[in-house]
Amino acid sequence: MEAGVVRFDYDDRSNVSGMYHGKRVYRDNNHILDISPGEIWIVSLSLNPSTGQNYFAKPLKRIDGSFLYEMKKDQIDSLSKYLWENNRTILQPFLQEIYESVMNEQIAKAVREQTASLEKTIADLSAQIDGLNRIKEEDSKIIAAKEDEVELLKAELLMMESKPSEAAGTQSSAPRPPEDSPEGFAEKLKPSKHPIIRTGPDTLRSDGFRKSRYFVHLSADHKTLLIRDDPNGNVVCIDSTLTLAGLSTVLPFDSERPMESEYSPRYGGTLVTLR
């Protein structure tokens, strides 16, 4: 008694039979399950005891769609392995043809995703570089202002050293508030490198206006104007000229003339005296 897989069909004598190891397999007519022609069955085979030339098959399980659905994973794996090992030469070119196109698509998709990710990283890094450059630029301005301040202090020191008696006299007669005095945050102003010229009723021009945007602030007594460059400034600079709406109402325009201006480290900008 052994088990086997047999495909049944009509033979030359119109009997339903199959073949197993070169021997004809006939249905065991005593069995309750009926084998129809064209079906594949797992059968229990018993050799014909009288002739020994054919088998009688007792049907165990029909192999059809439902059988495949009911298979467990390990059964499927075993079946796949069996099919692959015994039919590799047939299956390999067939699968290769299918999966080449699929794999190519997957590879292209992965490359696209990686490229997009790298492009985003590049954009982020560029933004970081821009930010750092802006900080660097601001730091440079602060350093330049501090250096100018130091130079000014050095010059004053030299003057004091060359004229000690005069300096002492000044100090004794009219003591100046210390640098950190709260009286108006006393600070050393210095003349602007580039003169600021009133070119029109509402326009100021200076070669020093090199940035694109500025903040411009006015004191409530209308005597002081502070001009400070800032990327978010609300006054746009075009051709080194600032247009300040309402300036003529604060200070009437008579003719083109330079304005008195000084750089203020405290405000980080140029103070223009309106008179």
Partner: peptide, 18 residues
């Protein structure tokens, strides 16, 4: 300490174009 705000440049000038 008293700060006289009249002298502080704190009024923001708005550009005419704006």
């Amino acid at each position: 300490v008293y700060h006289n705000l009249d002298k502080e440049p704190i009024l923001s000038l708005v550009n005419l174009s704006d």
